[in-house]
Design a protein around this nucleic acid. Structure first.
Length: 356
DNA sequence: AAGGCGGGGAA
DNA sequence: TTCCCAGCCTT
């Protein structure tokens, strides 16, 4: 059974029961700020492509609860794509600060400007065209095309990977089986492509969850190979994971007589690109002595720990009261306005530790 | 094809 | 702790 499925690229590929999925979705769809529910959709209400796009970008590798506040803040500050395109990029980075994967924010702003300048602010209605835009890849293009325009494309995200891997009892890491998963979904997409896509994501989020497959209430348990195996949680097969290296560094928090803190902007490329930071050392694999930017009465305030995607970081936090700028470029920021800056979480921790 | 790129909630 | 989330881009 497994062998046949895994080799298949055509007619023998299994399909998902779209009818059962849609019937379940009509009863159980999650209510989300950017979503037009199945009832309203049936009555002809169309989703706002700007909201759908914005939410999809925010939801890349990010959970629904985390996105909630950011989505509300963005749509309040920039109600339309034209507002967002006209905003200074730094304002967008400030609003994105804390959400992570900051390339998304830079691409979001660039995409808004392309859409306004080259498409009259109108979203292309096909996945193929959407994928040409910055920050929009295979998943997001398909999601927007399906949800907004009911294009019958396969929308495959992490949830769908898991659902299909279980449904077919896929015996290889799903990461290497994208074409197979896409094929299964593509063969299943009904006319109501948008609702179907969202039903699959809701199923993955609420029933076919990572560590618990609630088969008793699953609308497609009937033909699920994972359920039949007796241990659906065995799927998807886990890919080997790499150890996370530890890095160390120092941060130098300087406060002047007016109570302002010295900040600077990070480079345009690389980690936390173009975001705001506290001056400090490089982050390397060994603990080193601090190379203070100038001599003075530096106070050690302790360390903070932070985990990035590919390494863990320990920063020793130093504080000094001085009017000397620690670096060539940068600026003095009033303490009570720090929260509005484009500070990634690691630097918010640094400042919290230094100023407590 | 592989690696860089955040952060937080759930178990 | 570990997992992994409505992924994309660069090399």
């Amino acid at each position: 059974m497994h062998e046949k499925i895994s080799k298949t690229r055509g007619k023998n590929a299994p399909t998902l029961d779209a009818e059962a999925m849609l019937e379940w979705y009509d009863r159980s769809a999650r209510t989300l700020p950017w979503r037009v529910g199945p009832q309203a959709r049936a009555e002809g209400v169309l989703p706002n492509p700007y909201f759908v796009w914005l939410s999809e970008i925010m939801l890349q590798q990010t959970t629904v609860p985390t996105v909630g506040k950011y989505f509300a803040a963005f749509t309040s500050q920039w109600p339309t794509i034209f507002d967002l395109a006209a905003a200074p990029r730094d304002d967008v980075l400030k609003a994105w600060a804390g959400l992570g994967y900051y390339a998304r924010a830079r691409n979001l702003h660039a995409c808004a400007q392309v859409l306004v300048e080259e498409h009259n602010g109108i979203f292309p209605a096909s996945a193929e065209e959407l994928q040409k835009l910055p920050g929009i890849g295979p998943y997001t293009s398909a999601a927007i095309a399906a949800i907004c325009f009911d294009e019958q494309v396969a929308v495959v995200d992490g949830n769908v990977d898991r659902v299909v891997a279980r449904y077919t009892a896929l015996d290889k890491p799903v990461r290497d089986q994208k074409p197979f998963v896409r094929e299964v979904v593509a063969r299943s997409v009904p006319k109501r492509a948008g609702d179907f896509a969202q039903s699959l994501m809701d199923l993955g989020a609420t029933i076919c969850a990572p560590k618990r497959a609630n088969c008793l209430i699953c609308p497609i348990a009937q033909n699920c190979a994972g359920r039949k195996s007796g241990a659906p949680e065995n799927y998807p097969v886990a890919a080997p994971k790499k150890p996370k290296p530890q890095r160390f560094g120092h941060a130098f928090v300087v406060q002047n007589q007016r109570g302002e803190i010295f900040l600077r902007q990070r480079p345009e490329k690389g980690l936390l690109a173009a975001m705001t930071e506290v001056p400090g050392s490089e982050w390397i694999g060994d603990r080193t002595e601090p190379a203070f930017p100038f001599t003075g009465d530096w106070h050690k305030r302790g360390t903070i720990d932070h985990v990035f995607t590919h390494f863990a970081l320990e920063v020793t936090v130093w504080f000094i009261q001085s009017d000397t700028p620690p670096t060539e470029t940068g600026w003095w920021q009033p303490r009570d306005t720090l929260t509005g800056e484009a500070l990634p979480t690691a630097f918010k921790k640094v400042l919290q530790k230094a100023l407590k």
